[in-house]
C-alpha cells in the first residue's frame, strides 16, 4: 500500500481514473470515458490527468499495460492494490450517500 491511511478519501478525478482503468486505457480513452460516465460534468484536464497517472503509478495503484502493437500511446491498467483502494472508497461513498439521504431526506419531510 501507499503511505496514505485506509480511510482517506480519493479525489473525484482519481476515483474516476481508477474506475476507468479496470480496463486498459490510454490518456485520451480515460478522458472520454470520464466525460461519458459523468454526462460531461467532469472533463479531466491533461496536466491534471498526467500528474495523477504518474502519482498513481509511483504508488503502485496502476501500472503501464504493454500491448503487442507498437502504438506510441501509453496504456495503463489498475493493479490489485488499486482495485482494493477503489473498493474501500466505494464503501466510504456509500456511507456518505446513505447519511446524506437520511438527513436531507428527513429535513425535506419536516419542511413539507
Amino acid at each position: 500500500m501507499g503511505n496514505k491511511t485506509d480511510n482517506s478519501a480519493l479525489t473525484e478525478a482519481v476515483f474516476y481514473i481508477l474506475l476507468s482503468l479496470l480496463e486498459p486505457m490510454h490518456g485520451y480513452g480515460i478522458i472520454q470515458n470520464v466525460i461519458d460516465l459523468t454526462n460531461n460534468r467532469v472533463n479531466l484536464a491533461p496536466g491534471t490527468l498526467y500528474g495523477a497517472l504518474n502519482t498513481l503509478q509511483e504508488k503502485d495503484l496502476i501500472r503501464p499495460y504493454d500491448t503487442d502493437d507498437d502504438s506510441r500511446r501509453k496504456e495503463y491498467v489498475i493493479t490489485k492494490e488499486g482495485k482494493e483502494t477503489l473498493m474501500r472508497d466505494l464503501v466510504r461513498l456509500k456511507e456518505l450517500v446513505k447519511n446524506g439521504d437520511k438527513y436531507l431526506g428527513r429535513k425535506t419531510n419536516e419542511s413539507n
Binding site: E12, A13, V42, N43, L44, A45, P46, T48, G51, A52
Partner: peptide, 11 residues
C-alpha cells in the same frame, strides 16, 4: 471544446 491544463485545485 474547452481547454484547460489543470482541472482541480491541487493541480
Amino acid at each position: 471544446g474547452q481547454f484547460h491544463l489543470h482541472s482541480d485545485l491541487s493541480s
